[in-house]
Amino acid sequence: MILDHKKVERISKALGDPYRLKIMEMAKGKGGEWMQCACIGNNIELAQSTISHHISQLVDAEILIAEKDGRNAKYKVNKEVLTAYVNFLNQLQE
């Protein structure tokens, strides 16, 4: 997968917030397991609406995958997009 500059910019902006980085760290889980939405709220002291905004930014940047689980949601890191992003950044140092 090759990312265009607009996609790289969107991912960079999404990762430019410490709370979003923390959410990504939580979402990486163990072996690609899904993280329940409640887990985020239990580990970040922010209003639910603020957490939802941060998650939305990560999902819109396609570095976090969201899936409905009944009335709840679960999340995991989109490894394909994140790997393409890292590869793009690595090309900058060549």
Score class of each variant (00 low, 15 high):
Met1Leu: 10
Met1Gly: 13
Ile2Cys: 00
Ile2Ala: 08
Asp4His: 12
Asp4Trp: 06
His5Ser: 15
Lys6Ser: 14
Lys7Trp: 00
Val8His: 01
Glu9Ser: 14
Glu9Lys: 11
Arg10Leu: 00
Arg10Cys: 02
Arg10Tyr: 01
Ile11Met: 03
Ile11Asn: 02
Ser12Cys: 01
Ser12Arg: 06
Lys13Ile: 04
Lys13His: 10
Leu15Asp: 02
Leu15His: 07
Leu15Pro: 01
Gly16Trp: 01
Gly16Cys: 06
Gly16Lys: 00
Gly16His: 07
Asp17Gly: 07
Asp17Pro: 04
Pro18Ala: 12
Pro18Gln: 13
Tyr19Thr: 09
Tyr19Asn: 12
Arg20Trp: 05
Arg20Lys: 07
Leu21Val: 14
Leu21His: 07
Lys22Ser: 13
Lys22Leu: 14
Lys22Phe: 12
Lys22Cys: 09
Ile23Met: 15
Ile23Arg: 00
Ile23Phe: 09
Met24Lys: 00
Met24His: 07
Glu25Gln: 08
Met26Ala: 04
Met26Tyr: 11
Met26His: 06
Ala27Gln: 00
Lys28Tyr: 06
Lys28Ala: 02
Lys28Ile: 13
Lys28Cys: 03
Gly29Lys: 04
Gly29Thr: 10
Lys30Trp: 10
Gly32Glu: 05
Gly32Cys: 07
Glu33Asp: 14
Trp34Ser: 06
Trp34Asp: 05
Met35Ser: 11
Met35Glu: 05
Met35Gly: 01
Met35Pro: 01
Gln36Arg: 11
Gln36Ser: 07
Gln36Met: 06
Ala38Asn: 06
Ala38Gly: 08
Cys39Asp: 11
Ile40Ala: 04
Ile40Pro: 02
Gly41Ser: 03
Asn42Ala: 13
Asn42Gln: 09
Asn42Asp: 08
Asn42Trp: 01
Asn43Leu: 13
Asn43Tyr: 04
Ile44Val: 15
Leu46Ala: 08
Leu46Phe: 03
Leu46Val: 05
Ala47Gln: 11
Gln48Ile: 08
Ser49Arg: 12
Ile51Arg: 12
Ile51Glu: 02
Ser52His: 13
His53Ile: 08
His53Phe: 09
His54Leu: 06
His54Gly: 03
His54Asn: 13
Ile55Val: 14
Ile55Ser: 01
Ile55Thr: 03
Ile55Phe: 03
Ser56Leu: 06
Ser56Ile: 04
Ser56His: 09
Leu58Tyr: 04
Val59Arg: 05
Asp60Pro: 02
Asp60Cys: 09
Ala61Asn: 05
Ala61Glu: 00
Ile63Asp: 00
Ile63Asn: 03
Leu64Cys: 06
Ile65Thr: 13
Ile65Glu: 15
Ala66Gly: 04
Ala66Glu: 10
Glu67Arg: 15
Lys68Ser: 14
Asp69Pro: 02
Gly70Ile: 08
Gly70Asn: 10
Arg71Val: 09
Arg71Ala: 08
Asn72Ile: 05
Ala73Thr: 12
Lys74Ile: 10
Tyr75Leu: 05
Val77Pro: 00
Asn78Pro: 04
Asn78Thr: 05
Asn78Trp: 10
Glu80Pro: 00
Glu80Tyr: 02
Val81Cys: 08
Leu82Ala: 10
Leu82Val: 15
Thr83Arg: 07
Thr83Ser: 15
Ala84Arg: 04
Ala84Met: 06
Val86Leu: 13
Asn87Val: 09
Phe88Val: 04
Phe88Gln: 04
Phe88Ala: 09
Phe88Arg: 05
Leu89Gln: 11
Leu89Met: 15
Asn90Cys: 12
Gln91Cys: 12
Leu92Val: 02
Gln93Ile: 14
Gln93Asp: 11
Gln93Leu: 14
Glu94Ile: 13
Glu94His: 11
Glu94Ala: 14
